[in-house]
Amino acid sequence: MTPVLSFSEVAITTNVRRLHEVAVQSEHRWAAVLSRLVPIRLLRDLILPITKTASCSKVYDAEHLADAGFETVIFTGRVVDLKSLGRLKCVAQRTQMVVVIDHFRHAELLSQCVGQSGLKIQVLIEVDLGAQATGVRPGPDASLLATATALLPGLSLIGVFASAVDCGVERAGGETHEAMASIVTIAEHALRSIRDVSPECNEMIVAVSSARWLSKLDARIKCLAVSPFLNFNNEKYDAHQQHCVYLNATVISRPTLETCVIDAGRNALDAESDTCVYEPPGASIQHSTFETSTLLISGEAADLRIGDLVRLAVRNPERLLHQVRLS
Rank of each mutant, 00 (worst) to 15 (best):
H177W: 07
A179L: 10
G154M: 07
E27R: 13
L65S: 01
G299E: 08
R266Q: 09
V59Y: 08
S182N: 10
E291A: 11
P49S: 07
V184M: 02
V261F: 03
R78L: 06
F7E: 00
I50N: 11
R319D: 02
W30N: 00
I262D: 00
D263I: 14
H240Y: 07
F70V: 05
V208H: 08
D218F: 02
P39F: 05
D61C: 08
G115I: 06
L42G: 07
L320P: 02
A131G: 12
V169D: 12
E178V: 12
I183H: 03
L257G: 10
P280V: 06
A150T: 13
A68P: 01
A146G: 08
N231M: 04
H64N: 09
D308W: 07
S210M: 03
D166S: 13
E9M: 10
I306M: 09
V99E: 08
C244R: 10
I183W: 04
Q112L: 12
N267L: 15
V169I: 15
D218G: 02
A211F: 14
R137M: 14
S57Q: 10
A302M: 08
E170G: 01
V91Y: 05
S227P: 03
R311V: 14
G159H: 07
C244S: 15
H28E: 10
L230S: 01
N267V: 13
F104V: 12
T294D: 05
L129F: 11
E178S: 07
A268C: 14
R325Y: 15
V277C: 10
E279C: 02
I183P: 05
Q112G: 03
T176C: 07
G135Q: 15
V91F: 05
E203D: 09
S193E: 15
K52Q: 11
T147G: 11
L296V: 13
I101G: 05
A66H: 06
P228E: 13
L119W: 11
L269P: 09
R311A: 03
T134Q: 04
R41N: 10
Y278M: 03
V245G: 00
T13L: 14
H64D: 04
N248W: 07
C90R: 12
R137Q: 13
Y237P: 07
A179V: 06
A31P: 03
L144P: 06
L119N: 04
R36P: 06
T250R: 13
Q122T: 09
L191W: 06
